[in-house]
Design a protein around this nucleic acid. Structure first.
Ligand SMILES: [Mn+2]
Ligand SMILES: [Mn+2]
Ligand SMILES: [Mn+2]
Ligand SMILES: [Mn+2]
Lengths: 234, 234
DNA sequence: CTCATTTGTTAGATTAGCCTAACTTTTATA
DNA sequence: TATAAAAGTTAGGCTAATCTAACAAATGAG
């Protein structure tokens, strides 16, 4: 049985090693910063997790999850996102409130509990921030993610997720009148300071780079990539 | 903010000091046994809780909750019982499964969460074991409790609660075909070894003292106590 | 009232998780 | 390529929660 702290380290490592560029390893300081602890602290834990065969790590090297560690990390993420969905769907929490409480609930140890929550929610596949909920068997599809910042001027796109789950950011999104699955038109993009002019629900707004790179979208106007051919078994 | 451990000590103290005889204090060893720790450990915590003004305690004396401590303890009990009710009512857990998970959930820190669970359940007043759920304002009525062991031969009574919440005991109750609000007739009581012959749902059974003193009942045949006269304010 | 038993306390040790300060290795830049 | 900056490690210390072993106080049975 893992401690809450150990679970948090595994989850952090998963998040860092599959973020954006899919870089497969994370450094000690990076991990420490992400978790809000000092590098010395993270270093101790890395040694402990290596002992338990949950991560690959060697002195002065970067770290990554073993198959075992990855399985456990994905399970924590699954619980986190199911709880967020529960809070949002069943208890009327707003999307900027769910994360903090889910940080606590994700560590409750009861397979039956999480299975029941999953059933109660009819096996959801996305959480309130548009993140994929891993399946009970540990599969987590990594969806194609493009941010608002990368969208072309003149195009229209649909918001399908956010990358920053902080209450501050999420409330700013709400304040702009923007919600999940709304359509956004890019009116202009000042390359000099990366300011975007956008239109949402008929209202115009200017947003900065920081904002734009935290909104995940799918383009309405871009070429559809042909659906990947399904490989037949054998 | 209290730690999970501190909350557990306060809850234990509440439980010990309002059990049965309403004895108002608990000893160090008693508390330690209840929590499954050594007396030395409990002793340290008693000193810490006294520092925090949550309990009355002095060297070689018994302990009890202060008003502050009692308020906090009742809040933990409230959360515990609301979670048990949630698991039972909304997720289909059986009454012998809820306690263990509620032991974890009772420590989640979020007022909004527990308020929402309370609302979702339509403000229940009893948990699945027949225990009173304290109100949000911290009132916990101590209902009149008589056990099956105390019932007279020939009388019929109704099961309204259990005193032992262990899965082992609860499954034994299930096994006898007995559930909450069922009626029980006392056919015989062997005073020598305290064995009771009872009839439940048309089926006869023999039960021992240990069992009988853990079933809480109200008598169908006993004199109703006159409702206590309501005192007018002033 | 006495002394054996029960109850409670203290001292000292351990483990997990965290820190600071000092050190070492790696890396990137001049 | 030398060296300064960044990244990572180690040593030593702290707190919370636990333990064991030894000790002290309270109690109660004769
Ligand atoms: Mn979250
Ligand atoms: Mn967490
Ligand atoms: Mn319970
Ligand atoms: Mn508890």
């Amino acid at each position: 049985m893992l401690s809450t702290t150990e679970e948090n380290y595994l989850k952090a490592l998963l998040q860092l090693t599959m973020e954006d560029g899919l870089k497969p390893e994370a450094g000690t300081n990076e991990l420490a910063t992400h978790l809000g602890v000092k590098p010395a602290t993270a270093n101790d834990m890395l040694k402990k997790l290596r002992e338990k065969k949950l991560i690959h790590y060697e002195k002065y090297g970067k770290s990554s999850l073993t198959t075992q560690g990855r399985k456990l990390a994905i399970d924590v993420v699954r619980k986190h996102r199911l709880w967020e969905t529960f809070l949002y769907e069943k208890l009327g929490f707003s999307w900027d409130e769910v994360h903090e409480v889910a940080e606590q609930l994700e560590h409750i140890q009861s397979q039956k509990l999480i299975d029941s929550i999953d059933r109660l929610l009819h096996y959801p596949t996305y959480d309130p921030h548009g993140d994929v909920i891993p399946t009970a068997s540990g599969e987590m599809k990594m969806p194609y993610r493009k941010t608002l910042l990368e969208e072309e001027v003149g195009h229209t796109c649909k918001m399908v997720g956010v990358k920053d789950n902080s209450a501050t950011f999420l409330r700013y999104v709400d304040q702009l009148g923007l919600s999940m699955h709304n359509h956004i038109r890019i009116l202009a993009h000042q390359p000099y300071d990366n300011i975007l002019e956008i239109e949402v629900n008929g209202k115009k707004a200017s947003v900065g780079q920081r904002f734009a790179e935290n909104i995940i979208i799918v383009c309405d106007d871009c070429e559809r990539k042909p659906a990947p051919k399904k490989r037949r078994k054998n």
